[in-house]
């Protein structure tokens, strides 16, 4: 469903991604791993349409057969792509409900949106008062991650990148998040989990593991690759 063709990306004239080609298939779960600074977040940003990156002519991002390389982020979101941010910023004066009202283009009526939000919050063990506070203002790391997942659940994308959804999250919260994501995945969604650890992958089994190093996709394997990385690190890959 998502094809990356010779994807290279630059920011301020610095090469971040180098010639990545890969096809993500519908309904599968991918783990995207690699050392810090290997370009994992940039890959997710590129697919979502971050305006700071530039791509050479031959780089292509194709979603559902459509070339989206030059599409604005809001158009990509409409097509069903979602990105859960590694470090979501705080938004003063806007709570998650208001944000989702705008994001859903007021297509969901406010009452059902509220009900859905509250329902998902219960499942995610998010305190109700967080829904009414300005988004992420004074929220803990774990709370911020849960807010990202809440948005994913409401916006119901077909392809979702979760950038380090397991970082800064305690053991119990991790389990809650994993259970929720497993539930959300039903119905044929495609997930890309960017992670450093195998602990989340014990709850959500990846169909494939991708390893990036220095902006390149250096290895693609199955679940066993995760254990190997856990034991031996990235040096030998």
């Amino acid at each position: 469903m998502l094809i990356l063709k010779n994807l290279s990306a630059k920011i301020n004239n610095k090469d971040i991604l180098r010639d990545i080609s890969f096809t993500f298939e519908e309904g599968k779960v991918y783990a995207l791993m690699g050392p810090n600074g290997s370009g994992k977040s940039t890959l997710a940003f590129s697919v979502m349409g971050h305006p700071s990156y530039s791509f050479p002519e031959k780089s292509k991002i194709i979603f559902d057969g459509k070339n989206i390389t030059r599409l604005k982020p809001e158009r990509r979101a409409k097509l069903g792509i979602f990105l859960s941010f590694q470090s979501p910023l705080a938004l003063s004066g806007v709570n998650v409900f208001q944000l989702l009202r705008y994001a859903s283009q007021k297509k969901i009526d406010p009452l059902s949106l509220k009900e859905k939000l509250e329902d998902y919050s219960r499942k995610l063990k998010v305190a109700k008062e967080l829904l009414e506070r300005p988004l992420n203002e004074g929220f803990s790391g774990g709370e911020r991650k849960k807010m990202e997942i809440l948005q994913a659940a409401i916006l119901n994308p077909r392809l979702a990148f979760f950038d380090e959804i397991d970082t800064g999250v305690d053991v119990d919260a991790l389990k809650t998040i994993a259970l929720f994501l497993n539930d959300l995945k039903k119905g044929g969604k495609t997930f890309v989990l960017i992670t450093h650890y195998n602990r989340i992958l014990k709850h959500i089994k990846p169909d494939a593991v991708l390893v990036m190093k220095e902006g390149r996709l250096v290895r693609v394997g199955d679940g066993k690759l995760v254990d190997k990385i856990e034991k031996e690190g990235y040096e030998k890959i």
Partner: peptide, 8 residues
């Protein structure tokens, strides 16, 4: 970017 990535 955060807001536009949500479809706004």
């Amino acid at each position: 970017f955060y807001l536009t990535s949500r479809g706004i």
